[in-house]
Computed example of a mutant assay.
Amino acid sequence: MTNLKMTASEIGILWSQYIQNSMSMQITRYFVEIVEDEEIKNVLDQTLSYIEKVKLEIERLFNEEQIPIPAGFSESDVNLTAPKLYTDPFMLSFIEMFSKSGTLAYSVSLGGCTRKDIRSFLTNTVHDLTKLFNMTVEIGLLKGSYTSPPTITPPSEVEYVNGKSYFTNGLNPFNKRTLNSVEIFHLFENLKANILGSQFCTSFAQTTDNKQIQSFFTDGKNIGTKHVKVFSDKLIQSEIQPPTSHDHGITESTTRVFSDKLMMFLKSVLTSTSQGNYSTASTASMRYDLVADYQRLAIEVALYAKDGLDIMLKNHWLEEPPQATNRKELLNKK
């Protein structure tokens, strides 16, 4: 127990993580039901254990402060008896993404916290997620399903940028310099994220019975496929083999697994992550054609995200985060 009250930042951080973890919990619960590989099942069991630990700790912290526990997602948002919709390698890829993005999110959140107990909680969570990520990579390598980043021949000596052409010649279709290692990293990671996102869109469009939402996910798949091609072409131009899409990650089942609310929320998280990733990649890239591509594609993702937000608002699926007191409203009540 601490005498310090929770700051607005701490409340917002815990509130957001609670919502997202409640979603991930339902997805992972379904995965545990359908997984066949014992080693991947062990990873899923560990994931569920970590999620449950986070859930209970945030509930404890909120109860101490008398903050309402978010509704989030529950057993009603998942059909645990549905036939197998995802393959085992796909599920492992999801946990890889979940642990990787979670490690980043909790690490960033740590910098916005003051209370020692909350900082300790976030630090321990980062440790758990890092351990989980390492497990997914090791098992993926063992199974042959992990997509490793490309390799390049290391330079023989330190080199310096020689003039503005290093930045601008990417705009010349006949004389593009090859990609540097930082640019390759961002292209590769965004490729992997778009492949996984497109697969989720495929599975969601395949199982929803709402035509508007089905159309939304079909659009998402098409956008993801387009972005995969843009990033793949950039790698191929430098004679680097891009990762390929694993269409076998989704089965032919059309039985609903997740509620439309959960599917829409997951897609909103993925699009938000894409926008952040594109912004980071744009800043880190030193070829102007890459910067232009990331900014152009980010606008497309933003417009798509707005369509998703409109659907969620229409169906009253968006929970409202705790807000500052409206002083004008208080005065008007007197």
Rank of each mutant, 00 (worst) to 15 (best):
L4N: 15
L4E: 15
L4T: 14
A8W: 07
A8G: 06
S9T: 15
S9C: 14
G12I: 12
I13M: 13
I13L: 14
L14I: 11
Q17S: 12
Y18C: 13
I19M: 06
S22H: 11
S22A: 09
M23S: 13
S24D: 08
Q26F: 07
Q26K: 13
T28G: 00
T28M: 00
R29N: 13
V32Q: 07
D37A: 05
D37M: 05
I40F: 04
N42Q: 13
L48W: 09
Y50L: 03
K55Q: 13
L56W: 14
I58L: 06
P68H: 06
G72Y: 14
D77W: 08
V78K: 04
L80F: 03
A82R: 03
K84Y: 00
F90E: 02
F90C: 03
S93N: 10
F98D: 10
F98V: 09
S99E: 04
S101D: 11
S101W: 05
L104F: 06
Y106R: 09
Y106I: 10
Y106L: 12
V108Q: 05
V108C: 02
C113R: 07
D117R: 02
F121N: 03
L122C: 08
T123G: 06
T123D: 05
N124S: 12
H127W: 02
D128C: 01
K131Q: 09
K131N: 10
M135L: 12
G140R: 12
G140W: 09
L141W: 04
L142T: 07
L142F: 05
G144R: 06
S145M: 01
S148G: 01
I152P: 03
V158I: 13
V158S: 08
K164I: 10
K164T: 07
T168N: 11
N169P: 00
G170A: 00
L171H: 02
N172T: 08
P173H: 05
F174D: 05
L179N: 06
N180D: 13
S181P: 00
S181A: 07
E183I: 08
E189H: 06
K192Y: 01
I195K: 01
L196Y: 03
L196K: 03
S198G: 14
S198E: 04
T207A: 02
Q214T: 15
F216E: 02
D219W: 03
G220H: 00
N222T: 10
H227E: 04
V228P: 05
V230L: 10
F231V: 10
K234P: 02
D247N: 14
I250M: 07
E252H: 15
T255E: 14
R256T: 14
V257C: 03
D260R: 07
L262E: 12
K267N: 10
V269D: 11
S272I: 00
T273I: 08
T273D: 07
T283R: 01
M286W: 11
A292P: 00
Y294F: 15
A298F: 10
A302T: 13
L309N: 09
D310Y: 01
K314L: 00
N315A: 07
H316K: 12
P321E: 05
Q323P: 01
Q323D: 05
Q323K: 13
L331A: 02
N332M: 15
